[in-house]
Amino acid sequence: MKLYYSPGACSLAAHIILNEVNVDFDIERVDLKTHKTEKGADYYEINPKGYVPALEINPGLILTENVALLPFLAQQDPKQDLIPPSGLGRAKVLEWLGYLNSELHDAYAVFFGAPLDAEAKEKAYAEIDRLLTYIDQAIASSDHEYLVDDNFGPADAYLFVITNWSNYIEHDLTPYSHVVEIRNKVAARQSVQIAMRDEGLIP
C-alpha cells in the first residue's frame, strides 16, 4: 500500500492507523499548492479530487475519503481490535467518523483558506467551540476509555489529528478536558509518534 499525504493534514489519521496494523506500506508527500508529489507526479492523475488522503491499495486501485479509508485500514489487522467487525459497535465508529469529517473538520478548515477578518474569525472559533462542547460532553457521559469503546480506534486518531490544528490557529483546547484526555492518550501511542516524526511534525 502507499499513502499519499500532506504533513499534519487529515491524512495523518490514516498514517497513524497504518502504523497500528501489520501491513507493509510506503508514504509519498503531496504539495497541495502545486499538486505535485515528492517524486514529481501530477497528483490529479492519482486522485482527481486533488486532496489527501489517497491510499493506493494496488497499482491503479485508489481509495479516498477518511470515512471510508480509516475503517478499511483498521480492519486489516483483526488482532488489534481497532474497529468492531460488524453490528452497533462498527456503526458507532462510522457515526463518529461521519460527524468528525462533516462537522469538526469543516469548522477548522475555514482557517486554512482565504484570510479571515476579525468578525469571521470570531464566528469560526465559536463554531469550533460549539462542536467541541458536544464532543467533550459525549465523552464525559460515556464509561469508555475512547470515543466508541475501551480500545483506541480510527475515530480517536481522526479526533486527535483535527484538534491538533488548534495549535496552528491559536485556539485553546483547555476547556475541553475530556477531549484533551483522549488526545493525550492518543499522542502517547508509538504509532502516533512515528507518524508525526515521519511527517516532520516533531523532532
Rank of each mutant, 00 (worst) to 15 (best):
Met1Asp: 05
Met1Val: 10
Tyr4Ala: 08
Ser6His: 13
Ser6Arg: 01
Gly8Tyr: 06
Gly8Pro: 00
Ser11Phe: 03
Ala13Met: 03
His15Asp: 07
His15Ser: 10
Asn22Cys: 06
Val23Trp: 03
Val23Tyr: 01
Ile27Thr: 15
Glu28Gln: 12
Glu28Met: 10
Arg29Cys: 11
Arg29Gly: 04
Val30Asn: 05
Val30Met: 12
Asp31Ala: 02
Thr34Cys: 03
Thr34Ala: 12
Lys36Ile: 12
Lys36Gln: 15
Lys39Met: 09
Lys39Arg: 13
Lys39Ala: 15
Lys39Cys: 05
Tyr43Leu: 08
Tyr44Asp: 00
Ile46Val: 14
Asn47Val: 09
Asn47Ser: 14
Asn47Cys: 06
Pro48Arg: 11
Pro48Leu: 04
Lys49Leu: 13
Ala54Gly: 07
Leu55Met: 07
Glu56Gly: 02
Ile57Pro: 03
Asn58Leu: 10
Leu61Glu: 14
Leu61Asn: 13
Thr64Lys: 09
Thr64Gly: 00
Glu65Tyr: 05
Glu65Met: 08
Asn66Val: 04
Leu69Ile: 09
Pro71Asn: 11
Phe72Arg: 10
Gln76Pro: 00
Asp81His: 13
Ile83Cys: 05
Pro85Met: 07
Pro85Lys: 12
Ser86Cys: 01
Gly87Thr: 05
Gly87Leu: 04
Gly87Cys: 02
Leu88Val: 12
Arg90Tyr: 07
Arg90Thr: 01
Arg90Glu: 04
Lys92Pro: 01
Glu95Asn: 09
Gly98Arg: 00
Leu100Arg: 03
Asn101Met: 09
Asn101Ser: 15
His105Val: 04
His105Ser: 07
Tyr108Phe: 15
Tyr108Cys: 06
Phe112Lys: 03
Phe112Ser: 07
Gly113Ser: 02
Gly113Pro: 04
Ala114Ser: 14
Pro115Ser: 05
Leu116Thr: 10
Leu116Trp: 08
Asp117Lys: 10
Ala118Trp: 01
Glu119Ala: 14
Ala120Asp: 12
Ala120Gly: 01
Ala120Arg: 14
Glu122Arg: 12
Glu122Pro: 01
Lys123Gly: 04
Lys123Ser: 11
Ala126Asp: 07
Ala126Thr: 06
Glu127Asn: 14
Arg130Gln: 13
Arg130Gly: 01
Leu131Trp: 01
Leu132Ile: 07
Thr133Asp: 12
Tyr134Ala: 12
Ile135Lys: 04
Gln137Glu: 15
Ala138Asn: 14
Ser141Ala: 15
Ser141Asp: 15
Ser142Arg: 12
His144Ala: 14
His144Cys: 14
Asn151Asp: 11
Ala155Trp: 00
Ala157Asp: 03
Thr163Lys: 09
Ile169Asp: 07
Ile169His: 02
Asp172Val: 06
Asp172Lys: 13
Leu173Gly: 08
Pro175Lys: 09
His178Arg: 14
Val179Ile: 13
Val179Thr: 14
Val180Arg: 09
Val180Asn: 07
Glu181Trp: 01
Glu181Pro: 00
Arg183Gln: 13
Val186Asp: 14
Val186Arg: 11
Ala187His: 04
Arg189Pro: 02
Arg189Cys: 09
Gln193Tyr: 05
Gln193His: 08
Gln193Ile: 15
Ile194Leu: 13
Ile194Pro: 06
Met196His: 03
Met196Asn: 09
Glu199Asp: 11
Glu199Leu: 04
Gly200Leu: 11
Ile202Arg: 13
